[in-house]
């Protein structure tokens, strides 16, 4: 897996423009809520796939830290990267792949080396009634399935996995994000789709995961880091520690993530 497509300078004016745009949109839910002076605030920006697990972890963190309010903001990893790189007021940032995290590191927006706290494994998802009777990755041959576009991380993984499984049938659609793939499967407009394990969990019983041993290595790592501009570096570090604790692991497991430790790749 070599995401070398990236020729862009993260600090370029174009990125700043887009980031500014994104900021104005997210600012309403952001850090400027006013609030009491003695309350400490921790702002966590995380990839959209972390919504359920991080919301729960934020609640637990608040319960364990008297007088601390955790503000969460979820968006696509690329958007998060542009926001943080252009100075969005975040304390902790967690993305769904290493590449976007590297963008922030390159922009000197991180206080430390990021650590991987979770993996999300690519999963073959089918509608609950499995109309095309898909039993494994090889069954995709000749079926109507959708995947992410190769340019986005889930698409890069999918392309590789399909090649490995010898599937030559062209996907019906190269969706721009993994949620769109899931939507097509949910609506029954595709026989199958390649999404992340966490997406299948989030979709409930309307979508089934078809066990596919070939996919165990088709995973994306979720790195997390404390930002360089954090006003609460200690609290931020405690939140990162929570992610890597047994408690954090349990919550992430329930959401469909697998362990990220010991599987670090360069």
């Amino acid at each position: 897996m070599s995401p070398a497509l990236n020729r862009r300078q993260p600090g370029s004016p174009a990125v700043a423009l887009l980031a500014a745009l994104a900021l104005t949109v997210t600012a309403c839910g952001g850090a400027d809520d006013g609030g009491e002076g003695d309350e400490r605030r921790l702002t966590v920006m995380a990839a959209a796939s972390l919504t359920e697990s991080f919301t729960e972890l934020a609640d637990r963190f608040e319960a364990e830290h008297e007088g601390v309010e955790v503000v969460t903001s979820f968006d696509s990893s690329a958007t998060l990267a542009t926001q943080v790189a252009s100075g969005a007021p975040a304390d902790v940032v967690a993305t769904a792949d290493r590449r976007t995290m590297q963008m922030m590191a390159d922009a000197d927006a991180l206080a430390e080396e990021p650590v991987v706290f979770a993996r999300n494994v690519l999963t073959l998802a089918v509608p609950a009634d499995n109309p095309a009777d898909i039993k494994g990755l090889a069954d995709l041959q000749g079926s109507e399935f959708v995947v992410c576009a190769p340019a986005v991380p889930c698409g890069a993984l999918a392309t590789e996995a399909l090649r490995g499984a010898g599937v030559t049938t062209r996907p019906r659609s190269l969706e721009v994000d993994v949620k769109a793939v899931l939507t097509k499967v949910l609506l029954g407009e595709a026989d199958a789709g390649l999404v992340y394990a966490s997406d299948v969990v989030a979709a409930g019983d309307r979508v089934l995961a078809v066990p596919s041993p070939e996919l165990t290595e088709a995973a994306t790592d979720y790195p997390v880091a404390v930002t360089a501009d954090s006003g609460e570096p200690d609290l931020a570090q405690e939140f990162v520690d929570l992610l890597r604790s047994d408690e954090g692991r349990r919550v992430l497991d329930e959401a469909g993530f697998s362990s990220g430790e010991g599987e670090d790749q360069p």
Partner: peptide
């Protein structure tokens, strides 16, 4: 659609 796809990976 092409613009949107590029936006998530390559804003320029």
């Amino acid at each position: 659609l092409a613009v949107y796809e590029a936006l998530s990976t390559d804003p320029e």
